[in-house]
Design a protein around this nucleic acid. Structure first.
Lengths: 109, 109
DNA sequence: ACGCTAATAACGACACTGTGTATTATCGTT
DNA sequence: AACGATAATACACAGTGTCGTTATTAGCGT
């Protein structure tokens, strides 16, 4: 029912942040047990908790769902966004704003 | 409970594909009613149906969750890249070249 | 062996999904 | 006005699965 790879990504991300299940659960107001079930693929969070987790883990949705997405625009977007995300925040924002503007202009033709 | 912006993204994506709720529901083996509730934010799919929808709509997870993610510049970049991909080829290339240049400049600082 | 922390398990209430069916709203077309 | 196509809404309802509570086990260092 639940794709185990999603739980593994959650776990991986938590460990990347150097958090224990306890620490994360306390930070998010959830139980340790619940965190565990999610990481094992024994349960899958509903909307509210899913958002809570994604933001609590300071990650993107694609980073969690990447394994199960077949039509991910990762190819193009990822190359771009990986490069962009390695830049300082100001630069990131500057580029994204610029792109947004260019898209707008292109669309209005 | 459920963030309405997520449903709106689902709807937006379906319409981008030129599909009706009927067409999509048939394609995915779901009911039209169900599709409607999701797009209105009246319900939120579980793991299996969520993956089904993301793949059926040929989209990324970030494109759907972008509005509710706080730590994702990737999410923003992802939206932009989808918008970019809807532009004529010349425009796409022009923007990507521009971005590449901006990234290069930013890196060399 | 003992503490301490991390991870898993069992149990249960109840919230929500997802289908079925049927009605109403809205909009463009004729 | 009437019509068809699309979408929104309203139920009822079975079944699944979330999420908390509590208790148990596994690992690891001393």
């Amino acid at each position: 029912m639940i794709d185990k790879r999603i739980g593994r990504r959650f776990k991986q991300r938590r460990e990347e942040l150097g958090l224990t299940q306890d620490a994360l659960s306390e930070k998010l107001g959830l139980t340790t047990n619940y965190i565990s079930t999610i990481e094992r693929g024994a349960s899958f969070p509903r909307c509210e908790k899913l958002i809570l987790l994604l933001n609590g883990l300071e990650t993107s949705a694609d980073a969690i769902f990447c394994d199960v997405l077949t039509h991910s625009t990762k190819a193009k977007a990822s190359i771009l966004s990986e490069q962009i995300s390695s830049l300082p925040n100001e630069e990131q924002q500057r580029i994204l704003d610029m792109v947004e503007l260019m898209v707008k202009q292109a669309k209005s033709k």
